[in-house]
Amino acid sequence: MSYQWDFSPVLTRWPLLLDGLLNTVKIAAIAIVFGVLVGLVLALLRLSPRRSLRLPAAVFVEFYRNTPPIVHFFWFFYALPVVLNISLDPLVAAVLALSTQSGAFYAEVFRGGIRSIERGQWEGAKALGMTHTQLMRRIVVPQAATRMVAPFVERSFELIKTTALASTLAYGELLYQAMMVNSETFRPLEVYSTVALLYLVLLVSCSALARVAEARLTAYR
């Protein structure tokens, strides 16, 4: 193998990549916040005793879970503006795509957590005379929350990785910035290796944080 690796042209353009990294963190953070909100609403709808609320939420969730993310990005950036006769900024379109999509997955995390609480817990609370709201707040949600941590973190990792698709809308996150650097340096292997490494560092440090959080939440076991 005679390939001569040369990282220097890439590394001298580090401000571009740093910009990209910050934008990746920014878009991921915004999308997680909105995704959680969307997910909470969807989960409540899906847990409702009324079919007319459950069904549309289920269709929404299943649609998002069974179509590729890149379709959502393009749909929000190109298709939706045509229908509404507006124009969307790449960041807004990407956040819409990411948060609706991850909302569908978060909803399943929340719903799964709630439904994993044994029937005996619901009955134990009811037998004390608690109302539905009281038993959710005091008994079910606190226990479900600890069980949701791991799948929630997993889903958020997927979301962080999916932010790379915002590059296809020309939003300046890490991958897009890498493409810029590549077009200046013609060093694709070095550029994309560097960027892959940055993602790796980002995700590994997030997972360390997540472990600390999980240990705190499950202290009672």
Partner: peptide
């Protein structure tokens, strides 16, 4: 009510 499975709140 007292249940067969106790149903204490583990948290």
């Amino acid at each position: 009510m007292v249940f067969q499975q106790f149903n204490l709140f583990p948290h």
